[in-house]
């Protein structure tokens, strides 16, 4: 069974932290196909968070094909969870390592690199976020 934790200072929305923790647990084999996720009530009790946050996370995981909700029973990891295939991750990791080498060569420290990376991530995810008054 997975135990969730929350870092309210991390800047990552609470529901997304839960999603990431489930993805990680499935990847690591801590959660296996058929395993039940904690009930909404259990998570609310442990973390003192809004139940809608948990529901949001579980709905997202359902949409991603990682879990399925069975009404009246609970939420379970599916038989064939769709995660990013390992080969894809290896290629991404290699690109990232080359980028880090170039950045260090230019004299960037950890913080400067994190700043550049953060801007790039925000730049690509905000296209869905902008609102016109």
């Amino acid at each position: 069974m997975i135990a969730f934790h929350l870092d309210m200072r991390s800047g990552v929305p609470a529901y997304l932290q839960l999603v990431q923790q489930v993805r990680h647990a499935v990847r690591m084999g801590i959660l296996r196909p058929g395993d039940q996720l904690p009930t909404v009530k259990e998570v609310v009790s442990t973390l003192t968070i809004n139940p809608n946050t948990v529901l949001h996370a579980y709905r997202q995981l359902d949409m991603e094909g990682l879990v399925e909700g069975r009404r009246g029973v609970g939420t379970f990891v599916v038989e064939n969870p769709q995660l990013v295939p390992p080969e894809g991750l290896d290629a991404l990791r290699a690109t990232l390592e080359r980028w880090v080498t170039s950045a260090r060569g230019l004299g960037l420290d950890d913080e400067a690199m994190a700043g550049l990376f953060g801007e790039a991530v925000r730049g690509s995810s905000s296209t869905g976020e902008s609102r016109v008054a």
Binding site: K41, V44, T48
Partner: peptide, 14 residues
């Protein structure tokens, strides 16, 4: 505080 709010949120969940 935690226990009180936990009780409120459990009621919301239920």
């Amino acid at each position: 505080r935690r226990e009180f709010l936990g009780g409120v949120l459990e009621a919301v969940a239920e």
